[in-house]
Design a protein around this nucleic acid. Structure first.
Length: 962
RNA sequence: AGGCGGGUAGCUCAGUUGGCAGAGCGUCGCCUUUACACGGCGAAUGUCGCAGGUUCGAGCCCUGUCCCGCCUACCA
């Protein structure tokens, strides 16, 4: 079996590992140099890629990361998904565009720069608005691109020439345009309302910017004496005694059996001495507390409503930083709210008015940014009326309003949410929407385009400084507030493409195709983008929304900065020392810090080895599911790395064989595909179908599993092993035939995998394409590009081939059966027995004969001989398609093996009994579909025969115990 | 309180119209077999949360129930 030509078919020449650290930057640069992320049409509307002149656009606009952010695992997941989709569609013939950009992140950024100034000993308020904004721009220009650089490390194929920033001029214009338009339509108003107020950042917050959680607190029962009876009075229960200075009434339920009689009487407000009325209002729930509620309109949203109903004064008792203001008695002025509470309680106690204090769990809202409990504060703010916008969104989702509220109508939905069940959550929110407070009392952001007349209070809203302001600048001042960051984000899919201008980009690429984002900003952002798209352009800004799961650590805790349990994607790509792994935990100082640190020390005493971007991406895609959480641990990424290495080595085996063939200089004839080849092609087709379906349906976990199975099991474990005998054949045509199929399948496999693991596939692509071209051995589908990123996504070649798969399954079961017998009987690998086979159907013999060389290689046999009956003195193993016999006694002690047969016999008996029982059930035979019944009959026959044979074997070897 | 999910092998999770319970990791053997030890071959492992119901047949459908998570609202 010597090869006739001496060639260097030396597999050791192919590197054992993919050197991602070296290759990733090199390959990324190649893509950039080749303009591989560019669209078919430029921003001027000119066609720049003639081959995609008629291609349909496929557009994703990135959820803009904050300029203050560092890439976290959630970004890595979301951007991997987007990149996979864009690369898939780009290869599949679409004019794909992925618009990147960043968000100015109002409060977050201002806070970062404020801290920087604090460190320099500069008070930003003294610095003044203009200088402060200048400093923030400086900061942004210096640090604001860090996260973009990290997206590059991930391999994201964004069109960087179209990078946007939410504070760009164009986007600012879009913001002002939408503000003015909404104002003119009466959907935007200014009003005095109770808002969530952050005393640290001294700004209003939207409801979404407040994190609510149950916290332990106290409930204080305070007696408010009657004006006409100092010993009597009503007992009010409150958790906020320090706000009592702002009380303007005490409410009881108008039909309260005992308390209603007091309505109209007056009370003396403790500590303050002010006289306040007792009013009747249904807000006072007789079941709760003492049944008496103090009414503080300026510090509680419910009380605010009560106050409006009863025309009560609104008394604000706090300053912007939540210290007590001049309304309160002198003693308390300037005290922080909690200090004031303590002192007030002491004083009440002294006066005998503090009746009772009990433990109480209450929901405390904290600013998501400063983590400080928010204050309800009465102030002038800008609001967007949400109901009309939500109505439009509900209708766009095919809902109609009727007597039962909103219900699904006959109309088609313009929006598909994935996973589907999120739609219910979305609609529920839409149906219960509240107005959106969009003004923020900070400096960094889009300034409210409104001017107030200094004397009259008249308000003018306009895109640019209005004429009357220009004429009398001293009479007017521009509104001091800036807009909520989300007020620019909600326009993002439109504004990044040039809206409100009708730019060529906007005309061609809007509406976009898909929005992919984390589940937790469905309301913050997705819903509002829907509103903006529908309201301003009368259509959804995208057709599909994919909401990925939230990432959690291995014990199921959501990855968060405050727990320090996040895994840094860059640490995964580049590796990290044990100390670096510990850093986030040490920074966060969570309650279980010690355990977390210990775990890191134990599991990663020498740190974590770099695994590269592909392994990171692969692991994320492979792990994602439709649940609420994806649990990840560092070891999962090692598994991803193993997969990349497996692919690398499997491909390497074919590549070295291809190179060897090029060296041999063969040409011309090749053998036609064998049965094994047909099977592999059928498996490839089915994988292509799965992967396409998964990508189209946002079922990324299924995509990963299908590809994993194909690469590891079908391609490497079976096809590659089976091909070895042919690849080392001395018959040119046989070798070339095998290479033709294996090379072509490998190329398709790289195409299939590329959207998920772009680097390793791009690297291997060149290695495969070059020799395949040289040998001219393509089965079909010659590459259309030197770069895989530009090549074409595979389509199935044939419909499903159940016959071929069934035939090949016989081969697989045969090999496995022999291996099982060998393993359980301890037959060493260097022992090469002859196996005797009796075929039980007409497929078995042709299949095994055709692939005999390969099968004997896989099962480590000397030969396969076909027989018509079982000879004496052999051990049998039984399958529905064949019986195989081995002269095991020749090689090993049989005693061990017989135990195994007994077990197998027991199992077969059990299965047989169950099949028989089913067939004895008249109902089953009569009612079940005929094919099901037939299937069980067949199984029963096979099992009966198997039981018989195994029992006889045991008997023959005289070891039957039962 | 309401809404939405989830409970399947030691762990993380699949389970596509109801028809013989699956994968990866981990575990246990054997193997430095010429792509890969980041590997190969083989093995073990289940009250499908619990209780009913529908059905010839339920992990899957229905009812109830217990846990866990998330969201929304309220909390004097």
């Amino acid at each position: 079996m010597l090869s006739t030509v001496a060639v260097t078919d030396d597999h050791r020449q192919f590197p054992k590992r993919f050197d991602y650290a070296e290759a990733e930057p090199r390959l990324y640069q190649r893509w950039r140099d080749a303009d591989a992320f560019a669209t078919a049409y430029g921003p001027d509307g000119a066609n720049v890629d003639a081959s995609k002149k008629d291609a349909k656009p496929y557009v994703i606009v990135i959820p803009p990361p904050n300029i203050t952010g560092r890439l976290h695992m959630g970004h890595a997941l979301n951007n991997t998904i987007q990149d996979a989709l864009v690369r898939f569609k780009r290869m599949d013939g679409f004019d794909a565009l992925w618009v990147p950009g960043t968000d100015h992140a109002g409060i977050a950024t201002q806070t970062v720069v404020k801290k920087q100034l604090d460190a320099e000993g500069i008070d930003y308020r003294e610095l003044g608005r203009e200088k402060m904004i200048e400093r923030i721009w400086e900061w942004r220009n210096q640090y604001g691109h860090a996260i973009i650089d990290q997206l590059v490390r991930l391999g994201c194929s964004c069109d960087w020439s179209r990078t946007r920033f939410t504070m760009d001029d164009g986007l600012n214009q879009a913001v002002r345009h939408s503000f003015v338009k909404l104002y003119e339509e009466g959907l935007l108003y200014r009003g005095k309302r109770i808002v969530n107020w952050c005393p640290v950042d001294r700004t209003a917050l939207s409801d979404d910017e407040v994190d609510k959680a149950d916290e332990k607190g106290k409930m204080y029962h305070i007696r408010y004496p009657f004006e006409d009876d100092a010993e009597g009075g009503l007992i009010v229960a409150t958790t906020r005694p320090e706000t009592l200075f702002g009380d303007v009434a005490v409410a009881v339920h108008p039909e309260h059996p005992k308390l209603a009689q007091h309505i109209g009487r007056k009370l003396v407000l403790p500590l303050q001495g002010r006289i306040i009325p007792i009013i009747g209002d249904e807000h006072a729930d007789p079941e709760k507390g003492t049944g008496c509620v103090k009414i503080t309109p300026a510090h509680d949203p419910n009380d605010f409503e009560v106050g409006l109903r009863h025309d009560l004064e609104q008394i604000n008792v706090m300053n912007e930083d939540a210290s007590m203001n001049d309304v309160v008695p002198e003693k308390y002025r300037g005290m922080d709210r909690y200090h004031a509470r303590k002192v007030a309680l002491e004083d009440l106690d002294e006066q005998g008015l503090l009746v009772k204090v009990e433990d109480h769990t209450l929901a405390i809202g904290r600013s998501y940014r400063s983590k400080v409990p928010i204050e309800f504060r009465l102030s002038d703010q800008w609001f967007v009326k949400m109901e009309p916008l939500a109505k439009q969104a509900l209708e766009a989702s095919g809902y109609v309003h009727g007597e039962d509220g909103w219900t699904k109508g006959d109309g088609e939905s313009q929006l598909n949410l994935h996973p589907e069940r999120t739609e219910k959550i979305y609609l529920h929110w839409l149906a219960n929407i509240r107005d959106w407070c969009i003004s923020r009392q900070i400096w960094w952001g889009h300034r409210v385009p409104a001017w107030h007349h200094v004397e009259t209070g008249e308000i003018v809203v306009a895109m640019d400084e209005p004429e009357q302001v220009k004429a009398n600048p001293d009479q007017w001042r521009q509104d001091e507030d800036v807009l909520d960051t989300w007020f620019s984000s909600w326009l993002w899919p439109m504004s990044t493409l040039g809206w409100p201008e009708r730019t060529p980009d906007f005309e061609r690429y809007y509406p976009t195709s898909v929005l992919s984002t984390a589940k937790d900003i469905l309301f913050f952002w997705v819903a509002r983008m829907n509103f903006a798209g529908l309201h301003f352009e009368n259509r959804m800004p995208y057709r599909d929304v994919y909401l990925h799961s939230v990432l959690a650590d291995e014990s199921g805790d959501k990855m968060s900065k405050s727990l320090g349990n996040g895994i840094d994607p860059v640490s995964v790509i580049d590796g990290a020392t044990s100390e670096e792994l510990k850093a986030p935990v040490l920074a966060a100082r969570p309650p279980d810090m010690k355990q977390r640190l210990k775990r890191i020390e134990k599991n990663f005493p020498d740190g974590f080895d770099a695994v590269g971007a592909d392994a990171l991406r692969w692991t994320l895609v492979y792990s994602v599911n439709e649940g609420d959480f994806v649990r990840l641990s560092l070891t999962r990424f090692t598994e991803g790395r193993n997969f990349v290495t497996k692919l690398w080595n499997g491909a390497g085996r074919i590549i070295t064989a291809l190179r060897a063939e090029v060296e041999r200089g063969t040409s011309g004839a090749y053998a036609e595909p064998t049965d094994e080849d047909q099977w592999l092609l059928a498996r490839l087709d089915s994988t292509i179908r799965d992967v396409r379906k998964g990508l189209e349906g946002f079922d990324f976990g299924a995509v990963g599993q299908s590809l994993y199975h194909f690469v590891w099991d079908d391609f490497c474990s079976w096809a590659l092993e089976l091909s070895k005998t042919r690849l080392t054949s001395d018959d040119d045509a046989v070798r070339r035939g095998a290479l033709r199929v294996m090379g072509s399948v490998l190329a398709d496999l790289l195409r299939l995998l590329h959207p998920i693991v772009p680097f390793v596939t791009e690297e291997l692509w060149a290695f495969v394409v070059e020799p395949m071209n040289a040998l001219d051995l393509w089965l079909d589908r010659k590459p259309s590009s030197e770069l895989l990123i530009r090549d074409v996504y595979p389509e199935p070649r044939q419909p499903p081939q159940p016959d071929i798969e069934a035939r090949f399954a016989i081969l697989q079961r045969f090999v496995v059966k022999v291996r099982q017998v060998r393993a359980s009987a301890n037959v060493k690998d260097n022992v090469r027995p002859v196996v005797l086979v009796k075929a039980l159907n007409d497929k078995t013999r042709p299949m095994l004969e055709q692939a005999k060389g390969a099968v004997t290689f896989l099962a480590r046999l000397d030969d396969i001989t076909f027989v018509d009956a079982k000879p004496k003195g052999v051990i049998g193993a039984y399958d529905e398609a064949f019986e195989l016999y081995l002269e095991l006694a020749k090689y090993v002690d049989l005693a061990e093996y017989l135990g195994r047969i007994e077990k197998e016999l027991d199992k077969a008996k059990q299965d047989l009994a169950s099949a028989e029982k089913q067939l004895a059930n008249k109902n089953f035979v009569d009612r079940a579909p005929a094919e099901k019944v037939e299937g069980v009959r067949q199984r029963q026959a096979e099992l009966a025969s198997k039981v018989e044979k195994l029992a006889k074997d045991l008997e023959d070897f005289g070891n039957l115990e039962s």
